[in-house]
Design a protein around this nucleic acid. Structure first.
Lengths: 253, 253
DNA sequence: GAGTGGTCTAGACCACGGT
DNA sequence: CCGTGGTCTAGACCACTCG
């Protein structure tokens, strides 16, 4: 690689650093290999640690590396494809292995959820927590809001565990006829509890997938699933997702 | 002798700041209103500017506010829903209002694209650039890679503009029978050219939507679309979804 | 206890948008 | 020109993991 050409508009240092490190990751480091610590790297490049960190943050955001406090910085494997929607629309928990029910509580939903459900603010809803694991790693945490009116026949429960109660609610929900659903994806940052479940620090970037389930002319359930943005590539559609994709570089203009 | 401290986990300052500011945005500021500059805010909260900025960065990531160099920091409108996939699978540029063709070049694709297209590294592809505007704002930039073999009958062109050539390629592509498509969403950071087109700084967070189009048993085209993550909520509407949102025509200032 | 990444400070200068 | 956010520095201390 040549020397950087001096430009009329100087490139920020951290941006140039990011490029250099990215290339080094491609050529000189293997996945999982730990690279020098931040103080050494900063010294090696002749920049302040904060500047070096700015580059590392971007690379972590792009899923190129992984940093763990007390341990070090390692090269990251390519993002895993996580199927989040096949064409068929189904209730949550249907023939599903990907998600695992955790627990279930009965509470009044936050304001945003209430409006999305078109329910009164003070109507209680079931809140089912589920978690999703892929390739041995936690990849998503979900909160499923189900108005009590959607599962009226839910028998008074005498279940051994929270998880069992969650499954009972889902089973009841599946008896309704699903009329349609609706999905949105946006960027967010992990709340404290989600962060813990996803093994990340609070504020870590996440992809929030919001799904509305329609039945009986109403919104019968609302799912808010937060996926680790650094390790996941959300896939929609038929095939099982093949290609990875990082990368810069296009021909010059 | 230790006195046991119950709240032994101190919340980071920037995290607390973020919460306070977020509440202030909800109650005390209207959309578009400019809030005090960073130096004032930092002084007001008794923290260093860098710490204050850490909080602002998160809020910007979540689409709560918008910062522009030389201007200031303003409250942001709710994210706009951007339809990125209806169930029907169609070729790009079909009955299309959302996207606008910009130009078209012929070049060899980057390595990642070549493998995704299952084409030889040195085979040229058409690269069509398109941009998408919603509510008067640029929201996405797209690169469409189309192997020359997908549009063999493309006549030697004598078009007045680059944009016209782009449209010609798309028209030719639409003559094939679309056998299926494949989508993935992941987090990325804007390359320099995309950033310019999206009116953001390089490195700004973007949602990268990769779509593969299948025809004739091959991947006939590959679309890589980068959406502004701060202002966009990608919707995959299926049903007769009730999408609202709001082009709030507030007075220009 | 040693070493790692995470947080925080108090400055400085730069690039940009408006006047 | 001025004021804004963007970049950068050279330190410091904290929280965590591991041997």
């Amino acid at each position: 690689m040549g020397t950087t050409q001096l430009e009329s508009v100087p490139e920020p240092k951290y941006w140039h650093l990011k490029t250099v490190l990215s290339e080094a990751l491609d050529s000189e480091f293997t996945v999982g290999e730990i690279l020098p610590n931040e103080r050494d790297l900063a010294a090696r490049f002749g920049v302040a640690r904060a500047t070096l960190r700015q580059a590392l943050e971007q690379l972590e955001l792009e899923g190129r590396l992984q940093r763990r406090r007390g341990v070090g910085t390692t090269g990251a494997p390519p993002r895993m494809g996580v199927a989040v929607g096949n064409d068929q629309q189904v209730w949550p928990g249907t023939g599903d292995d990907a998600w695992q029910a955790v627990d279930c509580t009965l509470a009044t939903p936050p304001a945003v959820v209430a409006t999305a459900l078109e329910t009164a603010r003070d109507r209680a809803v079931h809140i089912v927590r589920r978690s999703r694991v892929s390739h041995g790693q936690p990849v998503a945490a979900e909160l499923l809001y189900i108005p009590v009116t959607s599962v009226p026949d839910l028998t008074a429960i005498d279940t051994p565990s929270e998880a069992a109660r969650a499954r009972a609610v889902l089973r009841e929900l599946q008896r309704l006829e699903l009329e349609g659903q609706d999905r949105a994806v946006e960027l967010g940052s992990a709340r404290a509890d989600d962060a813990r479940e996803l093994d990340r620090l609070p504020g870590a970037p996440v992809l929030v997938v919001t799904t509305r389930f329609f039945a009986g002319g109403r919104t019968a359930a609302l799912s808010v699933a937060t996926y680790r943005a650094d390790t996941c590539r959300l896939t929609f559609g038929a095939s099982g997702g093949v290609e990875i994709h990082h990368g810069p570089e296009r021909q010059a203009s």
